[in-house]
Design a protein around this nucleic acid. Structure first.
Length: 838
RNA sequence: GCGGAUGUGGCGGAAUUGGCAGACGCGCACGGUUCAGGUCCGUGUGAGUAACAUCGUGUAGGUUCGAAUCCUAUCAUCCGCACCA
């Protein structure tokens, strides 16, 4: 055994051995209980960052622990390898995206191996490879056949910088989620997935996911945005069509004093054409269209709009009320039209004030501060109905139901449910993505490609300019195909798929990654996924809505298609916190922020690995904070972790010649002295703690701290007079095993040095001895009125009576109760005695 | 505005069921080892006091024999959503 901890030598040695021995290869064993550990696969940018290292270190501990605990563990890794950076690199450097991506994958593959992660590389997938995207295309067609994919012309979100459309979910604060460029509207005819058909199920199933963080579930609930209300039918004076609005406040129908349509509402042209209002209305529509999403949503205060010269008729009282258009009404929510009740809706109130419109209160709210005749803001509290005909006197909550019933009887409305969730726009006008396997035939219209013609390969004769239409249109070979229905000439779809499709089912492909006949075998997927999906999914919270919602949608669809058993993809979800680091800002203040190149507070995994080794990097990351919290990077902390590993290494080295090969079986180890007893106690409580913390609650920081306590105890013990070598040996061996999931290289090395021929990666997790955890003597806290006064050392399980008797004899207790009345004595055996005195 | 979280030493954090607040690590101080520095080993380290007392988990109340933990109010910070009718 080397005297010094030569981490680089050790790490390389064991990585080589693991590869040679195929240590992490997993095969289906249908009789054995499985455990699916999954970390979000990376985009192959070429370099790992600390966020990756944290994500994968957490996953690796889980995988290694569960394997040692006896599960058949699947722990795969792959590449989310379609996407814009590759294409941008191609535009900039003239390297083909495939070459750029392949080389990055190779580099990152090596970096992951360098950190000692226990992946089964036989299951590796890369979404940009034809053997993966063939099945992506197949799945697209399956969705199309089910009526879940459709093409529709629409004004869509367009990122001028990325030169592509974006899904609703990819627009953040009116800007492109990726490049922050303000999004504009463009009329296109993209493909959509009908995710709204699953809105209710996506919402309801969240209640069946207790293993997900509330934060993520709440975000998804808000995003789906279910709201219960009613559609109300208004007539329009001098127009044949009815005007349907959506409202959650049916109770306020008597308070409607005007109507508003979205500027894009289809009636607007009809209602104003050839009238004196046409010019002003068109001018306003132009003005709105020119505004970017940011301008339209950020200037929230000032309400604008135009009267269109027509009147609607209130179905409950026949009142004629003016119709306006305004951009505070959105075309893509509800019906694109609203009934305005300025007395009870703040937005309507602001608009009514700006346009000097009538305000009629219809709910006498339970708020003494509100003067209904002189409102300063909308009155939104609950209350009693007024000015509402036969509904007067009702509680307004009840009036909602009564009003809906009334409308339904009159044929003037019905109860409905609305969602904020929109259908998923999946077309992208870019090259580096999966081609959409659809053809447009002059005779037959849009038809799916034949299955035997899949995959539709990405052409290589394409120009990358970053401008204009989809790059696939520049290929001379790609565009024409044969109509699978009539055999005539058909034109291919030139757009590619959103890369979020690729990542919506990759975890299923891992279960059967090499299948070239199907997307995956159902039996294999059902084994690994089970009834409830991936056992533990780990990744950043930034995917709370996009990826995690899309994947749930996909899984449900595939479940409905009979392709998989599980209805939800991820049983348990852990969202790890960001890696942050302090730095001094321009004003000289020390602040903490997420590691980023622009702030200059980045620590690269490579430099840490070179200086201290992969084990130290992993240990520090796992020790410094619980996984779901932010991780504050500290260079001193890293050194502390390194020191700990040196300390462990030295301890083994110092005693290696004495304990190596000791064959005393655990059962034959005698516990003789008090020191022995103490060491045995610490050893077993550490095993218990690590088992619970690393295997159950995933609090790796406390698991590691308890192993540190064991090491400290071993250092204390070796100084004791009568060292019990078999016990010491046992403690060191078990310490090395429980440390293994966190720092696999050094522990394999020490295990081997200790004379074992087997490997820790396939070792059995140690059990703790309950008997060793029972102490002969316990410390009992003595309190007077809840304040600590003294401590008693008593035999374990001393009766309440004896505890009280003993405690009364203590000087400090005598002193405190002298001349006082003992009101009550509370005794919790083995823990505490409290005298309540007056 | 709505929703979700989080507030504990000089710092990262622990306290899993209401029962010794501050485990473990960093930092700092002192001692040993060393020619010396570093390493390593050991001791100490919430405030306060000569020592006790006492005070102490954002703030103010409350429940309880007993509260970091439960309840009410409030402040601060972070995150998400946001003209969703």
């Amino acid at each position: 055994m080397n005297e010094r901890y030569e981490f680089q030598e050790i790490e390389q040695k064991w990585q080589k051995i693991w590869a040679e021995e195929q240590a992490f290869k997993t095969v289906e064993d249908y009789d054995k209980e499985k455990y699916y550990t999954l970390e979000m696969f990376p985009y192959p940018s070429g370099k790992l960052h600390m966020g990756h290292v944290r994500n994968y270190s957490i996953g690796d501990v889980v995988a290694r622990f569960k394997k040692m605990a006896g599960y058949n563990v699947i722990h795969p890794m792959g590449w989310d390898s379609f996407g814009l950076p590759a294409e941008n690199a191609a535009i900039k450097n003239g390297i083909h995206p495939a070459i750029w991506t392949d080389s990055n994958i190779q580099d990152m593959h090596d970096q992951l191996n360098g950190l000692g992660f226990s992946y089964d590389w036989d299951r590796e997938v890369a979404t940009c490879k034809p053997d993966y995207y063939k099945w992506m295309q197949w799945l697209f067609i399956e969705l199309y056949k089910k009526g879940l994919a459709y093409k529709k012309e629409n004004p869509v979100n367009w990122c001028p910088s990325c030169a592509t459309v974006l899904a609703n979910e990819q627009v953040v604060d009116g800007a492109c989620e990726r490049c922050k460029t303000p999004v504009t509207k463009k009329n296109l005819s993209p493909w959509y997935f009908k995710i709204t058909a699953y809105a209710d199920r996506l919402l309801a199933n969240l209640d069946k996911l207790p293993g997900w963080p509330d934060k993520v579930k709440t975000m998804q609930r808000n995003w789906i945005g279910r709201s219960e209300g009613a559609e109300v039918v208004f007539g329009i004076d001098g127009y044949d069509n009815d005007l349907v609005v959506y409202t959650t406040r049916c109770d306020t129908l008597f308070g409607v004093t005007y109507m508003v349509l979205a500027p894009e509402h289809p009636y607007v042209k009809d209602l104003t054409e050839g009238t004196e209002y046409e010019a002003a209305v068109n001018a306003y529509i132009q003005e709105c269209a020119a505004k970017s999403e940011i301008e339209r949503t950020s200037l929230t205060k000032d309400k604008t709009g135009v009267f269109i010269g027509k009147y609607a008729i209130n179905p409950v009282n026949g009142n004629k009320i003016p119709i306006f258009i305004s951009d505070y009404v959105l075309m893509d929510y509800g019906t694109g039209a609203i009934m305005a009740v300025p007395a009870h809706d703040q937005r309507d109130f602001e608009f009514a004030k700006a346009f000097d419109l009538e305000i009629i209160p219809v709910v006498d709210v339970e708020d003494p501060e509100v003067d209904l005749n002189n409102l300063t803001e909308a009155a939104v509290a609950t209350g009693t109905m007024i000015n509402s005909g036969q509904f007067n006197g009702m509680n307004n909550k009840d009036a909602i139901k009564a009003m809906i019933q009334f409308l339904e009887e009159e044929g003037k409305g019905k109860a409905t449910v609305n969602y904020k969730l929109r259908d998923w726009l999946i077309s992208r006008q870019r090259y580096w993505g999966c081609p959409i396997p659809m053809l447009n035939c002059e005779k037959c219209g849009w038809v799916p490609e034949k299955e035997e013609n899949l995959p539709i390969l990405l052409p290589t004769d394409v120009e990358f300019t970053g401008k204009g239409a989809s790059p696939l249109t520049t290929s001379k070979t790609f565009g024409t195909g044969v109509c699978p229905v009539c055999g005539g000439k058909a034109e291919r779809e030139y757009d590619t798929m959103d890369t979020f499709l690729d990542s919506s089912w990759y975890f299923l492909r891992y279960c059967d990654a090499k299948n070239d006949e199907k997307a995956f075998d159902k039996k294999k997927v059902d084994y690994w996924m089970g009834q409830e999906g991936v056992d533990q999914y780990i990744g950043g919270v930034e995917h709370a809505i996009l990826h995690l919602l899309y994947s749930r949608f996909f899984q449900m669809v595939l479940h409905d298609l009979g392709l998989v058993e599980a209805e939800e993809p991820f049983k348990n979800l852990l969202t790890q916190g960001m890696v942050i680091k302090g730095y001094t800002d321009a004003d000289g203040n020390y602040v903490k922020a997420k590691m980023s190149k622009s702030l200059g507070n980045v620590v690269s995994p490579a430099e840490i690995q070179e200086k201290y080794g992969a084990d130290t990097a992993r240990l520090f990351i796992l020790f410094a904070a619980p996984p779901e919290k932010e991780l504050d990077w500290s260079d001193e902390g890293v050194e502390g972790s390194f020191r700990f590993l040196c300390r462990v290494y030295r301890l083994v080295h110092e005693y290696i010649t004495k304990i190596k090969g000791d064959q005393t079986p655990s059962a034959a180890i005698e516990i003789k002295t008090a020191d022995d007893k103490q060491l045995n106690f610490v050893l077993n409580s550490t095993i218990k703690k690590v088992t619970e913390d690393a295997g159950g609650r995933f609090n790796f920081n406390t698991a590691i701290s308890s192993i540190m306590e064991l090491v400290n105890e071993l250092y204390r013990y070796k100084a004791s007079a009568e060292m019990n070598l078999p016990l010491f040996n046992e403690a060191i061996n078990k310490m090395v095993i429980v440390l293994n999931p966190f720092v696999p290289h050094i522990t394999e090395e020490l295990w081997s040095c200790l004379g074992h021929d087997d490997r820790l990666y396939s070792a059995e997790w140690p059990k703790y001895d309950e008997a060793a955890l029972v102490k002969d003597e316990v410390e009992v806290i003595v309190q007077i009125n809840g304040k600590l006064k003294d401590k008693l050392i008593l035999p374990n399980n001393t009766s309440k009576e004896v505890v009280e008797e003993t405690a009364r004899e203590l000087d400090k207790v005598k002193e405190a109760i002298d001349g006082m009345n003992i009101v009550k004595v509370i005794v919790v055996p083995n823990k505490i005695i409290n005298f309540v005195v007056k």
